[in-house]
Amino acid sequence: EFTQKQQDLLRHILDAFSKYRIPQEVTKKLLQQRSSVEENFLLLTETATSHVQVLVEFTKKLPGFQMLDHEDQIALLKGSAVEAMFLRSAQIFSRKIPSQQSELLEDRIRHSGIAEEYIVPMFNFYRSIGELKMTQEEYSLLTAITILSPDRSFVKNREAIDRLQEPLLEILQKYCKLNHPDDPQHFARLLGRLTELRTFNHHHSNMLTSWRIN
């Protein structure tokens, strides 16, 4: 069972995660009718920028984060922003949003100047996340765990970050045992998605380069 401390921490992170949303005026534009490659590109840029802002708000609420060295806070956010963005997109694409909305979003992504070689791994990842049928608890914990990764570049005090990440991994592991007794590999599968998520840092920087060239 969860200790009281673990229950409180999970509830706190779930609450912060429920506010981790892009403002409606940005999402509304995303769901408007088809637009040109340039408009799609600008919409995705605006969405990515807005995502970073809401990601910072979520991260500030992670217990202990604001006590970290200020430059380490920036290193963690810089190091995880892209991964958190793709994890969040995967959640949205695997959620039960009306199919014509997800088709519109998918169409917008496919027609925004992103090279096909980056579209394929992106939608493969969304599908592999979708297959896990993750709950809100799993998404919120996995997002927090991704942000609080001690091995990000430019981080000075790795132990302080590890002390914040460790309890979250324990809660997630216990949560998986409690909620997936029939699937002892579920926790390992979730961590496996984090590894897949890391590949998007590389994809994303190449995507930006190809965008600039186009």
């Binding site: 970073v52 802002q53 910072v56 920036i74 922003a81």
Partner: peptide, 21 residues
């Protein structure tokens, strides 16, 4: 607007709670 800023600038501003788009 924020979208012209680099990632680090957006993060620094957001950490300080400033969102002057």
């Amino acid at each position: 607007p924020a979208s012209n800023l680099g990632l680090e600038d957006i993060i620094r501003k957001a950490l300080m709670g400033k969102y002057d788009d």
